[in-house]
């Protein structure tokens, strides 16, 4: 692993009285693509939400060497942590362009990404630039959510189930985009169910089960470990 950009240790998270994460340890290196795998309901999305400060949590979260576990969400985001949620959460009444502009953080002078970059990556978005985001297809909405977060120039981007419900062609396009993002020095923490994509593009993988990490290693190591795959991943 390269120098860690995100180090999570002993993370607990709660929804009301339900204890979802039981002391999770995880790290992401600079420029690395790390996938967080596991079945539905094991706490993968909660993990990302806990890092973003959107659920009640305890434990230590270091981002670029700074403790962020007691910061409010917008402060965490301003330090360079990007979040693409599972349910996309585009702003349906605003246009595609307005959605993108809202990704830009106030007071930022420069960014690795311009609006033009987004349209080059996804020409479809440029075609629909003045359309309300609510009328876009699922795939287009996913592109928009991702681009909106990129406009905020994150150093680490956490993406929750980006390929869920998308056509295979768009999934392929997405995988290509992740590699493009990574090539610009941005780290990615990817929550995925599709093992093939995760194994193809990740530097390292974590497997979660019952609110804990049950496996950690390279994609090759996971590929070779049939026990972990059968017990924790296959349906």
């Amino acid at each position: 692993m390269t120098d860690p950009i995100l180090v999570v240790s002993g993370l607990h998270a709660y929804y009301d009285k339900s204890h979802i994460l039981n002391g999770v340890d995880l790290s992401v290196g600079s420029g690395e693509i790390v996938s967080l795998l596991g079945r539905n309901g094991v706490g993968r999305s909660t993990m990302i939400k806990a890092i973003m400060g959107q659920v009640i949590r305890s434990g230590s979260i270091q981002f670029k060497g700074e403790a962020i576990e007691s910061l409010p969400t917008y402060q965490i985001s301003r330090r360079g942590l990007g979040y693409v949620p599972e349910n996309r959460e585009i702003f349906p009444d605003l246009t595609v362009r307005q959605n993108l502009l809202l990704g830009i953080k106030s007071g930022r002078a420069s960014s690795r990404w311009s609006e033009r970059d987004m349209y080059n990556l996804f020409p479809r978005l440029e075609e629909r630039v003045n359309a309300p985001a609510g009328v876009l297809s699922g795939g287009e909405q996913q592109m928009l959510t991702l681009c909106r977060t990129l406009m905020g120039d994150p150093d680490l981007i956490m993406i929750d189930e980006p390929t869920e419900g998308l056509a295979p062609k768009i999934v392929e396009q997405m995988a290509g985009l992740f590699e493009e993002i990574s090539s610009r020095g941005i780290s990615i923490l990817l929550v995925e169910q599709k093992l093939t994509i995760a194994l193809k593009i990740s530097n390292r993988v974590y497997v979660m089960g019952h609110g804990n990490i049950v496996f950690h290693g390279t994609p090759e190591e996971l590929d070779a470990n049939a026990t972990v795959r059968q017990e924790w991943l296959e349906v």
């Binding site: 973003m52 409010p72 985001s77």
Partner: peptide, 25 residues
Amino acid sequence: TRVGLIVQASLTHPSMVEALGHNVP
């Protein structure tokens, strides 16, 4: 205005707007 857009977006998705780095409170 940009502030207006932030308000409009916060009407329906406050937690997402905050995750984009806007001071929603």
